[in-house]
Design a protein around this nucleic acid. Structure first.
Length: 489
RNA sequence: GGCCCCAUCGUCUAGUGGCCUAGGACACCGGCUUUUCACGCCGGCAACACGGGUUCGAAUCCCGUUGGGGUCACCA
């Protein structure tokens, strides 16, 4: 195609919890572009915020990525030639770079306390000016550092950013120029000796030979800092593409506060990964031509940067639900079973999961509940099959309407002895019995099925009546009918 | 507030000056199907933020206004 070197892209989450949908989309787009171009997809962990790191979060993120089908070529767990892939394991590298920057006069020590900084920001705000860290006339030397340490002051290192305008050639947003006057001397090494995101990120991208950076738009305004750092260090500047931000339905930036936005919670709530990933792909990207439903392979085929939009999309759960319903309907039996088993293994609320039905029963559940949106709907619709007879809650409205008003109790009395006589409890036999009753009584199936449904489930929601009775079994069915009859007062 | 960015149905979006009477999907509304709940099928409602230009012609180009978002941390 061209003589361009292959693309190297990375997804670099910080280990603060589960992967959320915004991160999943960033990972997806990077993965897609890597696959599309025959490039490399790297995953590294940016764990320089030791206060916020959550132990085990990296494993959770990996688990979520894999569940979504996004596998990486290089990075954590799988290794690679440019590791380590955890920033906290690369501290020496950062320190070396910081020493070099200081030696070259491109960075300097600073000793301000948080309180002092805060006071100056407040003042700048009061004067309606943007706060800019004032660069000292003379950069502190080692003896100043020693004195500061003795005085118990924090010691950080700031980057002396050149006062020049910097233009980011963003492949989504176009050229974005930030005036040099806006840039100030940001911290690159914190008082605890750990680098800030800016420094570590730039060093690692260079060290890992990342030549294409695709990330959320919240980083766009920071990119000039990164470019300035790259220039100071003699690193090449990668290509950049900043993605529009995913917002909630109120137009606020999607945050963990407004409901579950974690990939894992969609998994635990019974969504299919292929539905979730397809839905997420459409947040800020479109293949055009009225195309929506796509497999990961098809997305790879269709993906291109110039079809990434600039406007912030809202995360519409209704549409995601509809996508899932469609995917459930279109999935093969094997695929659906595998996904259902996965759901059962991670769900903490499913009654059916607790009942731990055998494989054949799980298969039947999937069949008789066809048309469901998400896996928990199977609990809603058929969960009563798995609870103790005594735990059945009779819905007063259903009892009143179906059993009292529409003569359901009388029908059940008729039915009970006939059902008791059924030797082989199968759909054909039950069907023959019930349709026979309809004919002899001159009533529609609703008159027979509804009372049975209410009797065995307590309400009006269940799978088709024959499926329900067969799944329930003869004993439970008869017991529940008797229990229902006992409800008559 | 400074700087930066964005702007098509309620939502995700198609649209790159004439093909637009603006297309698709979700939601919503109506109908059909039906032993319940769902599923499904058919139909309908619904948008180029506003104001100026440029042009024979603008959703598409330019300017302004308004609205929204991001960023200005020893967080990423």
């Amino acid at each position: 195609m061209s003589d361009q070197p292959p693309l190297r892209l990375r997804f670099a989450p910080s280990p603060t919890g589960y992967l959320h949908v915004g991160g999943a989309r960033t990972a997806l787009f990077n993965w897609l572009l890597a696959r599309k171009t025959g490039g490399t997809f790297i995953v590294r962990i940016e764990d320089t915020d030791t206060d916020r790191n959550v132990p085990g979060a990296d494993a959770k993120i990996m688990d979520d990525l894999r569940w979504l089908g996004l596998l990486w070529d290089e990075g954590i767990d799988v290794g690679g030639p440019n590791g380590p892939y955890y920033q906290m394991q690369r501290l020496e590298l950062y320190h070396e770079v910081v020493r070099r920057l200081i030696a070259e006069g491109k960075a300097y020590y600073a000793f301000d306390t948080q309180e002092e900084l805060e006071a100056r920001r407040k003042q700048a705000e009061a004067e309606k000016k943007a706060f800019k860290y004032p660069r000292p006339e003379r950069f502190p030397d080692e003896s100043d550092v020693k004195r500061a340490r003795l005085e118990g002051r924090p010691v950080v290192v700031r980057f002396a950013i050149p006062a020049e305008d910097i233009t980011v050639h963003d492949e989504v947003m176009g050229d974005v120029t930030v005036p040099g006057a806006e840039l100030d001397d940001f911290v690159i090494l914190k008082a605890d000796g750990i680098p800030t995101y800016h420094l570590a990120n730039v060093i690692d991208d260079a060290g890992m030979k990342v030549n294409f950076v695709m990330r959320g738009q919240e980083f766009l305004a920071q990119t000039p800092r990164h470019i300035a750092l790259q220039r100071a260090l003699g690193y090449p500047t990668p290509r950049y593409a900043h993605l529009p931000l995913i917002m909630d339905m109120k137009g606020r930036k999607l945050s963990k506060r407004d409901g579950d936005v974690e990939v894992h919670s969609f998994r635990a709530q019974g969504y299919l990964p292929e539905a979730l990933i397809n839905f997420i792909a459409l947040l800020g990207w479109s293949p055009g031509a009225d195309r929506e439903k796509m497999t990961l392979d098809e997305m790879v085929e269709l993906f291109s940067i110039d079809r990434i939009g600039k406007t912030n999309p809202k995360f519409d759960r209704e549409k995601l639900l509809a996508f899932n319903t469609d995917y459930v309907g279109a999935a093969s039996e094997e695929r659906l079973q595998a996904a259902y088993d996965d759901f059962l293994s991670v769900s903490e609320t499913s009654t059916i999961a607790r009942a731990n039905p055998d494989r054949e029963t799980r298969r039947e559940l999937l069949r008789v509940c066809r048309g469901f949106h998400t896996f928990p709907d199977i609990d809603t619709k058929a969960g009563f099959i798995f609870v103790d007879d005594a735990a059945i809650q009779y819905d007063p409205a259903a009892v009143q309407k179906v059993l009292v008003k529409d003569g359901g109790f009388a029908m059940l009395e008729n039915l009970l002895p006939l059902l008791e006589k059924v030797e082989v409890w199968t759909t054909p036999n039950l069907e023959a019995l019930l349709t026979g009753i309809c004919e002899s009584h001159g009533v529609k199936m609703g008159k027979v099925a509804q009372p049975l449904r209410v009797a065995v489930s307590g309400g009006t929601i269940s799978p088709a009546i024959y499926d329900t009775l067969v799944l329930l079994g003869k004993d439970k069915t008869l017991r529940r009918i008797r229990n229902a009859l006992a409800q008559r007062s």
